[in-house]
């Protein structure tokens, strides 16, 4: 639809026309702000914790372990220079050889969700599969945060009308 609109605008005399072809769904999936009544919908991106430990492929497990210890989380997300999620160092990996590098010790290709996923449906899946946390990424795979199931459960069971703020 937007390519046709762009063509039409050019025909109407606009000389600098840009087409955001990925569209509103892409914007929402990246967790970016919006306006309108639906903008206040509770979504994974708004509830995800953003202060989570990360490391790169070349960092050692010992380095990741230090970052995790300082964070209160129990895992370290392995990311590229562009912050694209590559893997996770979980408790077992973090308890292993501290001299190993993340690329060797990580679990590659962890499950991720987009920031705009339906929160109720996501929570239902997480409960059914006994998943406590899930990574939230933008459509390019960049890390946005870590959604804790318990955080979302608390918000979803809050009485209607109570303030809904993202956890610290």
């Amino acid at each position: 639809m937007s390519p046709r609109a762009a063509c039409r605008l050019e025909a109407l005399g606009f000389s600098a026309v840009y087409d955001y072809t990925a569209g509103k769904i892409d914007w929402l999936a990246a967790g970016l702000p919006t306006e309108g009544p639906a903008a206040s919908t509770l979504r994974p991106g708004a509830l995800a914790r953003t202060e989570i430990p990360t490391c790169t492929l070349d960092d050692t497990v010992a380095t990741a372990r230090q970052r995790v210890a300082a964070s209160g989380e129990d895992r370290c997300v392995v990311v590229s220079g562009e912050h694209i999620v590559l893997g996770v160092l979980d408790r077992d990996a973090l308890a292993g050889d501290g001299h190993a590098i993340a690329a060797e010790a990580m679990r590659a290709g962890p499950a991720t969700v987009r920031a705009n996923e339906d929160l109720s449906a996501l929570l239902e899946r997480m409960h059914r599969r006994n998943v406590m946390e899930i990574l939230v990424t933008d459509p390019d795979g960049r890390l946005l945060g870590l959604l804790h199931r318990d955080d979302a459960d608390v918000v979803m069971t809050r009485p209607h009308g109570a303030p809904a703020t993202a956890p610290d």
Binding site: M1, S2, A16, D19, A22, G23, W27
Partner: peptide, 10 residues
């Protein structure tokens, strides 16, 4: 001025 158009998806 430049114009950016968008719809729902690609």
């Amino acid at each position: 001025r430049p114009v950016i158009v968008y719809c729902w998806d690609a």
